[in-house]
């Protein structure tokens, strides 16, 4: 059986676990722990410390694994391990939290340095009233026009499917070029 993997990365609380949960055929294997600092607790109660793990079985011969990275920098030793052999990666960004844009950009650059694989940026939480428009986010994040920056709502399966499909199209394009 062949297995392929994609990595879902992004800053703390950008929606990586929710993204994987929306599409995975198995309950996501979560490695979450209660957050330890007061400021973190104000954002969410639990956080991923090692990785989230979701699965999509294509057929008897092929399985796609989705790995969510821990958002906290102190666990970034896991990133390289997760990046090894990845088909591509998704960078999740919370559209309503411009204070996390810089961190998102930094994570994006780190993963690009790990492996020259295709990637897309998912502008998550587009249903939030304070969400930035994707065009504005592209300028703020300094993302080139040829990189896909896609509107996303991680709790919506169709939206997640769209992001993954766009990533796969980019992977295909690169293979054929």
């Amino acid at each position: 059986m062949q297995t392929v993997k994609m990595v879902i990365t992004g800053p703390y609380s950008s929606g990586k676990t929710e993204f994987i949960s929306s599409i995975s055929e198995i309950d996501v294997v979560k490695t979450e722990r209660e957050v330890t600092t007061k400021a973190e607790r104000e954002v969410k109660d639990q956080t991923t410390v090692a990785m989230d793990f979701g699965r999509i079985t294509v057929d008897d011969d092929l399985v796609l694994y989705l790995f969510g990275t821990p958002g906290q920098r102190r666990f970034d030793f896991m990133w390289e391990i997760l990046a090894e052999g990845m088909l591509g990666f998704v960078v999740m960004v919370d559209s309503a939290k411009p204070e996390t844009f810089r961190e998102a950009k930094s994570i994006l650059e780190t993963f690009r340095a790990y492996a020259p694989t295709p990637y897309v940026v998912a502008a998550n939480k587009q249903d939030h009233p304070d969400a930035w428009q994707t065009d504005d986010m592209r300028v703020a994040l300094r993302i080139d026009e040829d990189v896909k920056l896609l509107p996303c709502v991680a709790k919506d399966k169709e939206s997640v499917k769209n992001v993954l499909l766009e990533l796969l199209y980019s992977i295909l394009e690169e293979m054929e070029s």
Binding site: V4, I23, L62, E80, A83, E84, G85, L165, I171
Partner: peptide, 24 residues
């Protein structure tokens, strides 16, 4: 650290993944 190895997957695999996700 050494650079992680990148994937070595064929286009056929990607097309099968696309079909699967579309059908979900």
């Amino acid at each position: 650290r050494p650079r992680p190895k990148s994937s070595n997957v064929q286009a056929d695999v990607v097309n099968r993944l696309i079909s699967k996700i579309k059908s979900m």
